[in-house]
Simulated scan of single mutants.
Amino acid sequence: MRQLIFKIVSFIPVFILVSIMVFSMLHMLPGDPATTILGNEASPEAIAALNEKLGMNKPIIMQYFDWIWDIIHGNFGNSMVDNTPVLQLISQRLPATLELITGSFIVALLIALPTGIISAARPGTWIDHICTSISMIGMSIPHFWLGMMMIIFFSVKIGILPASGYVPFSQDPAGNLASMIMPMVATGFRQSAVLMRIVRSSMLDILNADYIRTAIAKGLSERSVLMGQSLRNALIPVVTTSGLLIAGLIGGLVITETIFSIPGFGKLMIDSVFRRDYTTVQGTVLVTALLVIFINIAVDALYTYIDPRIKNEKEGGQNDK
């Protein structure tokens, strides 16, 4: 628990730095939100009045501290375009993206773990070559192209899945699965290619270790060695890579969400950038930073669960100090 609290506290400076960077970079862009909202034909008086209403006429440092103070109190402000609370926009869009991330990662694991383990267990064989080829194909094909091909085949040609749209799980579980399965597979297949290579490489290193040879020499079955000892010891780099992949998907699914017309978090962020909606952009980026921080904390916690020696080493180092 003490290490978890220390980890959370250590990310506070990162969060503050991200907030400063986001706030500063947005305000360095040319133009102003008032002109974007009112249009180029608006009078200078109307633009000045809107800037005053939005607080854009204050010094930038004062604007930053006012914004942070509101964030601390749970107020992310309202959209500069339609005056909708930013937290409401995020709460409406984030669930679809989190569902897409979760489903894509499950698809990636279902492909990567079996192929990576089998490939490592039979290095240099035709099975290894097939698994490696699948990985290379997954890394070479853009996920948006795969998504469009799936739409053409499963929606246009066969007609068994909807081409686009999103149905919340709470409203229609079957409809939700039908609308999300293609984007999940299109995204997850590419992620599986990266994970499969990490699983294979890590498993090969473990299988060549002396204690694995000893276990095999004592008569343990191949399945027991692969699944009982090798896989768990090989999971550290897999967990690290998984954390990076999930963090990258949080704001990086805008293309997939656009192709399949999913009202997700990434699309909200991009739309807000184009509309110069400062408060929404700032809110979405901060939420993204919080989610990435949470993922890093979760990955660090998984390390100690997978390999208790990591926890013992940390505790030993702290005791020495």
Rank of each mutant, 00 (worst) to 15 (best):
L268T: 10
L268M: 14
L268F: 15
M269C: 09
M269W: 02
M269F: 12
I270L: 12
I270N: 08
D271M: 11
S272N: 03
S272T: 02
S272A: 12
S272Q: 01
V273C: 11
V273I: 15
V273D: 04
V273T: 11
F274G: 11
F274T: 10
F274P: 03
F274Q: 09
R275D: 03
R275C: 02
R275I: 01
R275G: 04
R275K: 11
R275Y: 05
R276I: 03
R276N: 08
R276P: 00
R276T: 05
D277A: 14
D277T: 10
D277V: 11
Y278T: 08
Y278L: 15
Y278W: 09
T279G: 06
T279I: 13
T280N: 05
T280K: 03
V281H: 11
V281F: 11
V281P: 10
Q282V: 13
Q282S: 14
G283V: 06
G283T: 08
G283M: 06
T284R: 00
V285M: 11
L286Q: 07
L286M: 15
V287L: 05
V287I: 11
T288M: 09
T288E: 05
T288G: 10
A289F: 12
A289R: 01
L291K: 00
L291F: 12
V292L: 08
V292T: 07
V292Q: 02
V292A: 03
I293E: 06
F294Y: 13
I295D: 12
I295S: 08
I295K: 10
N296K: 04
N296G: 07
I297P: 01
I297V: 14
I297Y: 02
A298L: 15
A298E: 06
V299F: 05
V299G: 02
V299D: 05
V299P: 06
V299S: 05
V299K: 07
A301P: 00
A301T: 03
L302Q: 07
L302E: 04
Y303K: 00
T304Y: 05
Y305T: 04
I306Y: 06
I306F: 14
I306L: 15
I306S: 00
D307Y: 13
D307M: 09
D307W: 15
D307A: 04
P308A: 12
P308N: 09
P308K: 10
P308Y: 15
P308E: 10
R309G: 03
